[in-house]
Each structure stands twice: as C-alpha cells, then as structure tokens.
Amino acid sequence: MKYGFFSDVHANLEALKACIIDFRSEKLDKLYFLGDAVGYGPNPDECVKLIDEIAEVNLMGNHDYAALGLMETEYFNQYAAESMGWTKSSISEKTMEIMSDFELTHVIDRILLVHSSPREPENWHYILDMEDAEENFDFFKEKICLLGHTHRPYIVYKSESEEAILSKETEVTIEEEYRYLVNIGSVGQPRDGDPRSCYLIYDSDTGAIKLKRVQYDVKSTQMVMAKIGLPEYLIDRLAVGR
C-alpha cells in the first residue's frame, strides 16, 4: 500500500493542485491530510472542498480551529492574525461544516497522525529542535508519528537506548530497532528555504518513507493574494520558502 500524507495547505490552491497531480503520478492508494487547510492563503473554500474530496482522514490544525472561532488569535503573529480575520469573514458555512469534522489525531497501520505534537495535540506546541523531538518520543507508542505545523520537514529516528538522531536524508527505509518522528513539511507555505511544496510518501510494502517536493506556480498564488489585499510579508515569503 502506498500512502500520501500532506499538511499545511493554508488555502494555497495552486500548490494543492500541483500536489494532487503529483499524487496521481505517484499512484498513491490513500491520502491523509494533517491539518491547517486554511489561514494565510487566498482560497480557503476551494482548498477545504478539494482536501475533503481526496483525503481519507482530515486532521484539525490550529488555523482551522481558529477559523471555526474556537480559539483567540492573540498569540498568532500579526500577519497570521490579519489573514485569519480575512479567512473568518470569507469562508462559507459549508467550509465550516466540513472543518468541524476534522479530527485531532488518527492512527493507521502503526502510524500516529497529529498536526502539532503528540505530547499535547490540542495545545498546538511547536517541535523546533532535537530536544523537543526527543521529549515527544515519550508521548506516542506507534512505530511512526507524522506531523506538520512548523512547515519544516525532517525525519528523526530513535532506538530504545540511544538519543534521537536527525536524518540527513529525505528518504529512509524504516528499520526494526527505531521509531520515527517525521515532519512532513507544508504544501502551501514551505519555510525550510525551498519554496516547493512538500509532502510525504510511505510505502508499507517496502518500508520506504520519502519527503517529496513539488514545483507549483508561486506567482499565481501571489497575484490572488495581492488582489485580496493579504499582507505583503505573506505574499513575499512564498517565493523564498521562508
């Protein structure tokens, strides 16, 4: 079985469409969405509808949660809060209805899916360094934990007795003695210096996991954002992937 996992679309329809074409060419059997369908980007309704159509399971991200009016945006940065204001005012009732069914966590085939962190999924913590990663291994029992939230992909693995190790590769084969914590990156707003969309492929027959990059038309998204009047900083960062 070949699984595709994608996250943090952030209402970037161009990026999502490019990824869907890639999902098809990779002949993925099942797709899972790890949260943050909306926020920052210009096409929340279209993205939520598409994601709901293609994914087996949708997870709740903090931006989706905020868009439903379930949390204050006071700890969002200025730009995130500004775009959230626009998102809340523009999304349809149908979109709200779909998002209200997003799940907090989900387990498939010895894999835990969560948007932010296995430690406290509902508190949207960020795993920003190896110390955070190491600590979070104690909060899941599955072989693999996949997450998004920080928009920076990585593969970390850990054995029972040793410290966690950050993989230098973007493709690894699952080994018996390790457990894995993998950030699958972001479709709609990568922040690791590579502006291309990122998602994860897992082949349960071979045990291979692979972070896949996909080129999309950044300029198209930027033009729609400018038309709406979304913050310039959010428009500019797409081109540099920061």
């Binding site: 709740m60 949660y65 009016g69 379930l70 949390m71 204050e72 209200s100 997003f102 799940e103 907090l104 966590t105 509902e122």
Partner: peptide, 11 residues
C-alpha cells in the same frame, strides 16, 4: 471560558 465546544470530537 469564552468558548465551549460541543460534539463528538476529542477536541
């Protein structure tokens, strides 16, 4: 609290 959610979700 300011918001109370009601539903099936663990959230």
């Amino acid at each position: 609290r300011n918001v109370v959610t009601i539903g099936k979700s663990s959230l």
